[in-house]
Structure formats: C-alpha cells, structure tokens
Design a binder for these strands. Structure first.
Lengths: 143, 143
DNA sequence: ATGCCTGCAAATGATTTGCAATGTA
DNA sequence: TACATTGCAAATCATTTGCAGGCAT
C-alpha cells in the first residue's frame, strides 16, 4: 500500500487529511512490522514536538475502526500495522528480533485432528514466532 | 489437580498457606476456564470482604512465576488458570460461550508448509475458538 | 521469633474523555 | 463557514509498590 492510497482511503471515509495523518500514513506504510502506540508517538514526536499521546491513540483507534489499520494483541501490549493486503485467508510469521511479519498461506485448520464433532469452530489463531534470515545473520556476528 | 496438591505445590516452593490462598486454590481447581483478576477478586471478596485488589494481583503473579498458574493474553485482557497437567505439547479449544478450555493434541507445526528455510522457528501459538457442545445446546433453546 | 502476607494508600502506566482553539474541506 | 482534529488537562482503568501490622511456620 502507498501513502496516497492510504490517505485516499481515509478521505473516502470522511476523515480529514492533516499533516500529522500524512506523517502517520508514511510511518505505517514504511513500517514492516507492528508498531505500538508508543512507537508511533516517538516517531511522530520528532516532526511534531507538541504532539500529544491522546491524538496518537485517537488516530489509531479511528483507523482501526475504519479497517485501515489492523490491531494485534501481543503479550507485551497492543500493536498496529496497515491491514494485510492479502485477501486470502492466511497466517503470520513474526520475527522476535525486528518485529517484522510475513504472511504464510498455510492454514492449520485444513489438516486439524482431534476437535470433537460437537465443537463448533468459529475462528482460530495461528502464529509462528522466530527469527528472520536477516536477524539470524546479525545474531551470528554478535555472538 | 486437587486443592491439596496445589497447596502442597505452594508450600514446597516456600509460600505460606493462608486462608485466602486456600480459597484461591479452591477457586482455581474448580474453575473450568480462565479467570481474570477481576473474577478472582469478586469471588474471593465474598469470603473476605476486606480483600484488596493488590493482594489478588500479587498472588496471581507469584503463582504464575512459580509455574502453578498459567497466564494467557486474550484480546480483552490477561487471564489465569491452573497449569495444564498434560505434559505433552498440546493446544487448546476455547469456548466463546463459557470460556471453558479443552486441550487437543494436534499440533499444526507437524504439517506446516510455506515457512522459509532461513526462518528460525522458536515457538508458535495455535488456538481454536468456538462453542462447546453444552453451549451449543443452550444456544439452540435460546434461539 | 522470624519473615512472609495482607490491607491501605499512593504511585505508575496505559488509555480515554471534555473542552476550547485550530486547521481542513 | 462548518465541523473534524488537535493539545491540554484531567479522568479512568489496570497493575505495582512502600509501609506497618498480622499471621504462618
């Protein structure tokens, strides 16, 4: 997704395009992984010294409600990223080193066994955590 | 697990057995699903009107650190339950109706495809949400 | 008797809300 | 111009911490 597309999405849905939201869009479009509200605040704060945390929260919430951002509950808190463009059902590889995520098409439900017939499946969650090639390389040189 | 076993576990690890902890043990042993700190507080509060929230938090944290309780991050917050007795690697079915959980032995990693060779897998999460037989029956009569 | 456990109060951290001023459409 | 957006301050909610007295061992 490009910054322009994201801004258009926001505009179409009735949001006004402010300078901050342009910066926010750029941040999320460029980001390869999930961002915490704090991450967002810190990045935005460089360009907007007077920025307040509540504005960050408000924007994250609105953008999530509009489906432009995706929200994810990690053990260490809630994080956001632009919604996955892949319309197919998929899951994610999540790098513990750089937080980058990568979609995988494999779905464990296709081969699942052991679920009682009388259990009505509604949804499922499958995530694989580990280290991406880049972080592994960096890890090697570090020790 | 029985209340006695749980108390013994606590005692062995150097914790003192207070009346509150007896009640706490009973609560968790009887509980079939996950409990939030609030759930615990509300239940305990019946027997101990003067109970404070921080004591609940402290006990939950300590018991989790000792591995007696298991902690789980849900979308709506952190929940606890006695650690799964099944030593084998397994995953869970989670009922959206009654919060009850049921282990399943099936592990999606055995048949997983599409993970790049250079991605080093560390851990994974697989959870199936839905409605258990009992909640389905109740749901039918409700409409 | 020793030292863990508890309740209280206050601190902390994350997130939300009310309001007046400002900027976008 | 009209209304969404912002910053500020304060409120809220969840969780943690310091301290002094009480209880298990």
């Amino acid at each position: 997704m490009t910054v322009e597309e994201m801004l258009r999405d926001m505009s179409v849905r009735g949001l006004r395009i402010t300078e901050q939201r342009r910066t926010l869009s750029k941040l999320f479009v460029d980001a390869e992984g999930y961002l915490t509200p704090k991450d967002v605040y810190e990045y935005m704060n460089k360009s907007y010294p007077g920025l307040s945390f509540d504005t960050v929260y408000r924007n994250l919430r609105v953008l999530h409600e509009l489906g432009i951002l995706e929200q994810f509950v990690f053990e260490d808190g809630i994080k956001f990223r632009v919604r996955c463009q892949d319309d197919h059902h998929h899951h994610h590889l999540i790098c513990l080193g750089c937080d980058r995520i990568e979609p995988i098409r494999y779905c464990p439900m296709t081969g699942v066994e052991g679920i009682p017939d009388d259990f009505e499946v509604v949804r499922h969650k499958f995530e694989v955590f580990g280290y991406c090639s880049q972080c592994r390389r960096e890890g090697e040189s570090d020790g």
